[in-house]
């Protein structure tokens, strides 16, 4: 779609929300190699970088870090941001140059299950389905009642 916008001359930008675990996949890096060559400055990756994937810590499974530097050496702009800080996120979004020829990666550092005491940092919730009670408790802790 980013390439289509370039071909058609449309001004929209493509945002890809992805995870750090997903960066295990070779196809991610195939896209990362292609985008700068095609000067896809309209392409923005946001990596939800919570440090966990299905069976453990990302860094114990595949050598992802330093992730921001990897994108830089592949010819991308890259920024690191606190993924829970909306102000920081907005500032980054506004600072991405619209007419850049470089694609941009935003590494958003996050905590899996943040704000829910019984989920935060517990990777079992990668698979576990919350019960109705769990949902009620989580919503209360997040102030969503």
């Amino acid at each position: 779609m980013a390439l289509a916008a370039k071909i058609s001359g449309n001004k929209y930008r493509s945002f890809v929300l992805m995870s750090d675990g997903e960066c295990n996949e070779g196809t991610v890096w195939e896209a990362v190699l292609l985008a700068p060559v095609q000067k896809l400055g309209n392409l923005i990756f946001i990596v939800d970088n919570n440090g966990w994937q299905a069976t453990g810590r990302c860094d114990d499974i595949m050598h992802l870090n330093p992730l921001a530097d990897k994108f830089k050496t592949f010819g991308w702009n890259s920024f690191e941001v606190d993924g829970h800080n909306f102000e920081e996120l907005l500032n980054i979004f506004h600072s991405i140059p619209v007419d850049s020829e470089k694609p941009t990666a935003i590494i958003a550092h996050t905590v899996k299950g943040k704000g829910v005491s019984f989920m935060e940092g517990d990777n079992n919730w990668h698979y576990r389905i919350p019960t109705a009670d769990d949902v009620t408790r989580a919503k209360a802790e997040l102030g969503l009642e």
């Binding site: 994937q53 299905a54 069976t55 453990g56 499974i61």
Partner: peptide
């Protein structure tokens, strides 16, 4: 394993720690 089977292979891993490899989400 392709980053699945959390705890499922714990017995195998305990007996044969050098014979189990989590290859990540990278099946090719």
């Amino acid at each position: 394993s392709g980053d699945i089977g959390n705890h499922m292979f714990d017995g195998f891993k305990a007996e044969f720690p050098d014979r189990f490899y989590n290859c990540g989400v990278a099946e090719a």
